[in-house]
């Protein structure tokens, strides 16, 4: 089995701290996710996600504050509006839409963070390496 490469864009104000909470409690989760801290999930444009895939990521996970809790009020509304469209576009182009995953994880939700990462890593491991499918 191959080790999938996953890019995780984590919002500084919630999910990144959620990851910290998980780490501090010594919760175990798969090491495949390369975490990139961003100021807000709304910073992640579709272009950034697409480029992550182009650079060889097998999956991209985007975690932000729950709707209503965004540090910038409506930053995560952008995420909720454009990422579902990007998933559709991936589907129409023949790319498994499961390769892109969006969820909301607060600073306190260390448990949820590990579950989400575990499940996403399993989903991606079950798919062939992205670059192979693109050849």
């Amino acid at each position: 089995m191959y080790e999938p490469k996953i890019i995780g864009f984590l919002c500084n104000w919630c999910s990144y701290r959620g990851a910290d909470t998980a780490g501090m409690a010594r919760m175990k989760y798969p090491p495949n996710v390369k975490i990139i801290r961003v100021p807000c999930s709304g910073r992640i444009s579709p272009e950034l996600v697409l480029r992550s895939f182009r650079e060889g990521a097998d999956g991209v996970i985007l975690l932000g504050c729950h709707i209503g809790d965004c540090h910038y009020a409506t930053g995560n509304h952008r995420t909720a509006k454009r990422m579902p469209v990007l998933k559709k576009l991936m589907e129409y182009t023949g790319i498994e839409p499961e390769r892109l995953y969006i969820n909301w994880v607060s600073a306190a939700e260390g448990e949820k963070f590990t579950t989400v990462i575990k499940e996403f890593t399993e989903t991606i491991s079950a798919l062939p390496p992205f670059v192979e499918t693109m050849k």
Partner: peptide, 15 residues
């Protein structure tokens, strides 16, 4: 306009 309107989140398919 990047702000969610009434009911849009429910239709987005997100968790």
């Amino acid at each position: 306009l990047l702000v969610l309107e009434e009911g849009e989140y429910e239709r987005s398919g997100l968790p």
